[in-house]
Design a protein around this nucleic acid. Structure first.
Length: 572
RNA sequence: CGGGACGUAGCGUAGCCUGGUAGCGCGCGUGGUUCGGGUCCACGAGGUCGUGAGUUCAAUUCUCACCGUCCCGACCA
């Protein structure tokens, strides 16, 4: 490619809309442009990088034995009704109507479609295992699109679906995807790692997310350096908190005390000398229209993902002040579960056997001390409901837990038979018995991965592309572009030879000053730059510079050879 | 949807408080100059000041509504 023939609109200044570095660089390097919120146009360079990521994904999926298919983005609502997700996934749908006013769904994901296919085409255990994948555009009515390609209304995803005849076979399929994902992210030059994850609305059995560490990531990962445990904070467990807080005040009876103006855990501990870990935090939630109380220790946070698991439903919300007053006769700040008989009480397991605790009295400005769980509070159900915190102990090995923010680029799920049962993906086993296929599903956000690469690989001058995903591997930079000049003649020769050898090369043939061209090539981040100028060429040399490396003069007649071997040594 | 910030030329911005219809930098065009790290000079093109209504002799400026963008939360690849 000749630069002058391409469209590479680099920007000196960052558009005001871009907050995080990868979003700014995508715009500044001329890789994408925004059409409107959450919708982006890929420009020639951005598309090339995207295709390289896609090809790595494709190669590794094929290598793992998965079969590429392409499913329609437009889907009939009926199959969603059949899987039972029409109602639960309602909020993410973009819907369209045809001329007959019939409704269609722009696919946010494809479990329903692939399972329908398999229901019709596979009927024997002899045809299993099978794993189908596609690389395709997904549509999701995101609540808040943000950070450019990170969270968009429309994005490219690689989604794969495995079908197995037994649980053991399904584990093997899962492992194959897990391994393929590790290879994919490594080849993309990403430092990604797998963490245990919550299954959320997918309703699967268990899952792992692939995370790229980044301060701008939307997720938090809890990990233990000692044993390697790592989990999404929605799922992560911790151990230290399991020790019941002991108190010398055991067996004392409950007594009221006045706490005017103390509405928070913090105020109560400062003004009344009650440490947070000796307080019980009482939260009121409305679960499927019924109010319930949820108790966690004062120094802990409720984890709503875990609450979903304990309740078996995601249909809940925090109660508002009026609802709370209607049921407890008090306002937030003085709430408690002592003596509450009419509402279900869900409590975090840490509170088991707690004595000498302080909690609200359901009377504004009044709290209770010497509260003993079990004696004074009737708990309906116990469970792990708290969010793990940095510094607590690993529940596997006891080592100290740390927390790191990260970008989720992939997710692998063991689904079980949820979809194969509802959509009738059944097969006959060896004994002639009809069984639902055991499914797994596996996603990679391809466009998000592209941005994650940039988020992880950049410096003050711009992007630092890993070799495998750079839009062009080599930027050939003649410092004079006069046709017929020695410099340009050599540039043309090298350009032709590199192209001949299958190397992606762009020649900056613009009639610009050297500094201008260097800045642009560094902003875009081509891995290899070969500069050809009159001064060094007079000595028979050209200048090789790796992005972020140092400038090395090499003999002009060895340039092609040098670049080819350099690239081969870095390819994976 | 709740909370916050904002909307002036392709991009970055000033002016708005204290109404009198716009200025700068980048980019763009032309000419010259320069030529190994975003040259310099001159001239020039480009704006319904997000949209609509209200107040006023007069609104980019004040008021209201709507639309859109960005950030924080619930959702997720």
């Amino acid at each position: 490619m000749r630069w002058s023939n391409c469209l590479i609109p680099t920007l000196k200044e960052s558009p005001a809309e871009a907050e995080i570095v990868s979003h700014r660089l995508l715009l500044r390097a001329g890789l994408i442009r925004k059409l409107t919120g959450g919708l982006y146009i890929f420009l020639p360079l951005g598309l090339r990088a995207l295709r390289k990521v896609e090809n790595i994904v494709r190669e590794e999926m094929n290598r793992s034995g998965a079969l590429e298919v392409l499913m329609p983005a437009l889907q009939p609502p009926e199959i969603w009704e059949q899987s039972g997700r029409y109602a639960t996934a309602q909020d993410v749908f973009f819907k369209v109507k045809d001329r007959a006013r019939k409704e269609w769904i722009l696919g946010p994901t494809h479990e329903e479609v692939i399972t329908t296919l398999v229901a019709g085409e596979l009927s024997s255990y002899r045809q299993l295992p099978k794993n189908f994948y596609q690389i395709q555009t997904k549509f999701r009515d995101e609540i808040r699109p943000r950070f450019g390609l990170m969270r968009a209304k429309e994005f490219i995803m690689k989604d794969a679906y495995s079908f197995d005849s037994s649980d053991e076979a399904s584990q093997i399929s899962y492992k194959k995807m897990y391994d393929a994902y590790s290879r994919i992210f490594a080849r993309c030059g990403l430092k990604a790692f797998a963490v245990e994850a919550d299954t959320g609305v997918m309703g699967g059995k268990f899952s792992h997310e692939f995370m790229v560490p980044a301060e701008t990531g939307e997720n938090e990962v809890v990990y233990c350096e000692a044993c390697g445990y790592a989990a999404n904070i929605e799922k992560a467990t911790s151990q230290s908190a399991l020790h019941a807080p002991l108190s010398a005040d055991a067996a004392k009876s409950v007594e009221k005390f006045l706490t005017p103006g103390a509405l928070t855990i913090d105020q109560l501990s400062k003004n009344h000398q009650v440490p947070a870990h000796l307080q019980i935090k009482t939260l009121v939630y409305v679960v499927e229209d019924k109010p319930v109380l949820i108790l966690v220790r004062g120094d802990h946070q409720l984890n709503e993902a875990k609450l979903t698991g304990l309740l078996g439903t995601a249909s809940f919300r925090q109660a508002n002040a009026e609802e709370i007053f209607a049921h407890l006769n008090a306002h937030p700040g003085s709430l408690g579960a002592v003596g509450v008989k009419t509402l279900s009480v869900y409590a975090d397991e840490v509170l088991q056997r707690s004595v000498g605790m302080t909690t609200g009295a359901n009377e504004d400005g009044v709290h209770l001390r010497n509260v003993e769980i079990g004696r004074d509070i009737q708990v309906t159900r116990w469970g792990d409901l708290r969010t793990a915190q940095a510094g607590e102990n690993c529940s596997k090995c006891g080592g100290p837990l740390k927390i790191q923010r990260a970008i989720e680029v992939g997710h692998v799920f063991k689904l079980g038979t949820k979809y194969s049962e509802s959509l009738k993906a059944l097969f006959l086993d060896e004994k002639g018995q009809q069984q639902p296929a055991i499914m797994g599903c596996y996603g990679i956000g391809v466009t998000r991965t592209l941005q994650a690469i940039i988020e992880q690989s950049n410096d003050k001058d711009g992007i630092v592309w890993p070799m495998n995903v750079a839009p062009y591997t080599v930027c050939l930079t003649p410092l004079t572009v006069t046709p017929g000049s020695a410099v340009m003649e050599l540039a043309e020769k090298i350009y032709a030879e590199l192209t001949e050898k299958g190397i992606d090369v762009i020649m900056d043939d613009r009639d610009e000053r050297p500094g201008f061209k260097f800045k642009d090539s560094e902003l875009i981040g081509f891995p290899v730059r070969l500069a050809i100028g009159e001064k060094s060429l007079a000595k028979g040399e050209v200048e090789l510079k790796l992005r972020g490396g140092i400038l090395t003069p090499i003999p002009a007649d060895k340039a092609v050879e040098e670049i080819v071997s350099l690239i081969q040594s870095k390819r994976s």
